[in-house]
Design a protein around this nucleic acid. Sequence first.
DNA 1: CTTTTGCTTAAAAACGGTTGCGTTCATTTC
DNA 2: GAAATGAACGCAACCGTTTTTAAGCAAAAG
Lengths: 333, 333
Amino acid sequence: MEKQTITIYDVAREANVSMATVSRVVNGNPNVKPATRKKVLEVIDKLDYRPNAVARGLASKKTTTVGVIIPDVTNMFFSSLARGIDDVATMYKYNIILANSDENSQKEVQVLNTLLAKQVDGLIYMGNDISDNIRQEFSRSKTPIVLAGSVDPDEQVGSVNIDYVAAVEAATTQLIKSGSTQVALVTGSLAQPINGQYRLQGYKQALAKAGLAYDESLVFESEYSYHAGLALFPQLQKSGATAAIVGDDELAVGLLDAALDAGVKVPEEFEIITSNNTKLTEMARPQLTSIDQPLYDIGAVAMRLLTKMMNKEDIDAKTIRLGFDITTRQSTK
Amino acid sequence: MEKQTITIYDVAREANVSMATVSRVVNGNPNVKPATRKKVLEVIDKLDYRPNAVARGLASKKTTTVGVIIPDVTNMFFSSLARGIDDVATMYKYNIILANSDENSQKEVQVLNTLLAKQVDGLIYMGNDISDNIRQEFSRSKTPIVLAGSVDPDEQVGSVNIDYVAAVEAATTQLIKSGSTQVALVTGSLAQPINGQYRLQGYKQALAKAGLAYDESLVFESEYSYHAGLALFPQLQKSGATAAIVGDDELAVGLLDAALDAGVKVPEEFEIITSNNTKLTEMARPQLTSIDQPLYDIGAVAMRLLTKMMNKEDIDAKTIRLGFDITTRQSTK
DNA sequence: CTTTTGCTTAAAAACGGTTGCGTTCATTTC
DNA sequence: GAAATGAACGCAACCGTTTTTAAGCAAAAG
């Protein structure tokens, strides 16, 4: 005795109209006489009818669902973006399918394909690295895609980010001005464009403008995690650095804690500027000075851009660069 | 010149078989002659055919998608659960639609309905409070539901959690044993069952067993946020408490930082045990002792339970209680 | 050699909607 | 009063699968 699901047909019969008419009132189509609309609405209410979104999706070729590929929800940086994405998605009546990729190119391709199979209307991709595999899939697919908090060197798809070069340059300059001549750059894999290309460039520019020589031994590649920071600090010390630009907040907190645990005073003996301004920066003691990327906004704007693309509206620019700031706290003098 | 999407029909024609046969090979149905299977597979590959999951969903009444209602992805507690959920979902070929609810009962009902309209095969609900509204929707719907990290007083739906009473009792006892007679309980709204019923009960039991009187002025209701912790600490001090059980890690870090900022030594003058053992507990200095809920596992097990329910397998018990521990760090003596 | 049996496969009916097109009918217009 | 207009609405094709039913056919059985 299954609870028979009731369909648009049942409503039509009960209201003495055709399915088409019911469909119209459900979709707010104006071509329905008010009296008819009222009657249909009553029946819908009485029967407790809920349109089947899957059938709708098949017929209309729209699912009002977007796929979101995220490296790890557990990472504050990405979850902040995700929150921005979901909020404006909801605002525009979309839902998001969230899929963790662990920045693993295979998983990414895999997940991208199932997302496309599910006929998502659009896609948002987060991740530091855009592998060739995934890039290939991107250009093959005709569903709109936008990158959030990531850059696409060859602007195939939409993207929302900040000016990483300028941000790191500003941060580095600040550290130099406060007296450090040995500023370390601690970041993710240099093979990834954001790190290897942009951050490194900003770093070098700041050095150049300050008349300092670029010293490769002050550049550190590291995983983005608390423990990696803890483990890395001794090497930083050995390098003679007295300050560091760090690419990730968890990593920065690790460095900070390691410094503290080693009796190194922050910021007196060692200064730190981190990159994401997540809640973590406030929770640390001393609080961390950070490049202030508007994470939530990046997500929100990315989703907004995506809605425009899905509506086939005209886009002024496929890539949007949001402003950034440097929020000074206690890890810098 | 739209890139014509190719359908199962195209494959059938090209391979000189019927759609049914193509469907069979796609779904791994054994009733296909190897030679035929091979031919179909070749055509699929050649045409780059991808089954349309929406059509599939309509025909089979299964979407291989589950809805996940989460208060806020940005909160480590919930995102850890979410990660566990997604991982086993992926393992079982499901995708998750993630929807933030902000613990707002209206949004929850709203989102629940759109999730059901989208024909999700199952639902996972996270949230401290189960409002009457949402409970009503739960019992009305016949799609499987399980709660993750939350309790359902009247066991309507599945649920995975730990024994909150025992956990808080153990933590409180530990604090008492180390010398505190004035242990504060800092938690979320007492109107929510987990806090008002379970945590409070565990707290009282520990006091009783230690022969201490229950003092209402040592119980604090607070929002779960870092800033709330910062603001609350002075009141804690005023109450004369020398230790606290805290219901949330961010909140606990707030309390800790406020104590440190006020020159109160932790753990010498004030001890703290927090509840979720998220990464935050390690990042704080001193590191926070915490009840160790297996967050990831709770999510994972919840999803596993859900898969069983979706398969209509027999379930031994609708509610699963996972074990907990107390991980001792530096915020206790 | 005819009848069963069992494996493959084809045909076609769902699944629950959307939507273009055509029809109906009450109003206007001439 | 007949013709034209336009608003409401019904018809039916279609969306891309799954799944049931039955047919075809070769091998086994009698």
